[in-house]
Amino acid sequence: MPPELAARRERRPFTAHLVGQNIGLLLVFALLAAAVLLYCVFFWIRQQSLPGNFELTSTVNNTMPLAMAAIGQTIVVLTRGLDLSVGGIIDLTNALAAVQIQDNAGSMLAWTAVVLLVGAALGLVNGLLVGVGRLQPIVVTLATLSIFQGLAIRVLPQPGGAIPPSYTAALVDPNNPWALLYLGLCVLLWLAFRRSALGVAIFAIGNDEGAARANGIKVVQGKVIAYTLSGVFAAAGGLFLAATATAGDATSGNGFTLSSIVAVVLGGVNLFGGRGSAVGAIAGAFVTTMIVNILFFSEIDPLYQSFYEGLFLIIAVVVGAVLGRLLRRRR
């Protein structure tokens, strides 16, 4: 029995650590609360009432595509990568859904599966190029973004197609916020992922690729899976987008590359990998939607939307970095 090394140090309780290690998550929920409050104030000023079920439903439904894309983006960012092709995958899957889905249960189920598989395949291409080909994620996904966008236009040259109303009702019921159930499912999946060997591998890769490899973690495999999952979630985003719009548009997904990064950063996911939570990114997606809502009520021209998105992205990154530095100094 080896000797005692040193005096026992007082241990902080488990929960204290949990708080300390999830500052980003707490911040985004605080931000979300603030955004909701502000929205309610604006709403009260305009309507002399509080937002109700209708507003909640439309907010949730409008957020679903982004929330999906943000979950996928989170997984890639955790490996210290970046997926710029998210917008292209949404374009393509959205177009596919609009062209193919017919108004019967069989077609809906089959095409939902096919579209998700297509997303997985597209993500797999990214993953193989980044993982096996050892290429830079940014350039790879920028190149595949271009390819996917081209393919999307090939599938649906003009905005159109149609999504059966029953499909819309199943995904994003316009009358009730049932879509929250999908989000709940995603959160459950995330919690399981976080506690799986795959989750450990992906976090380890983002911590330090070399160290992860030395620990026997299959780095290439982890990266390939991360990009594939990002493709699947982007495809889910494409489906939700088609369901919300009840039609297809091969360019309507373009903006999601930027906004998924905004959501991830707002959600406290560290862009240098290894730290963050998809739950935060979902909250980040809601903050993004709330900002649009608030802009709407404050009568700002919607043409300015990407201006505010860009601005909030920069503010979020900078504030995050400054906070991180402050916390570090205090230690």
Binding site: F203, A204, N270
Partner: peptide, 13 residues
Amino acid sequence: LPWMTVAENLLLG
């Protein structure tokens, strides 16, 4: 792995 806990590192895999 720097941003993981001591426990996570000890029991990795």
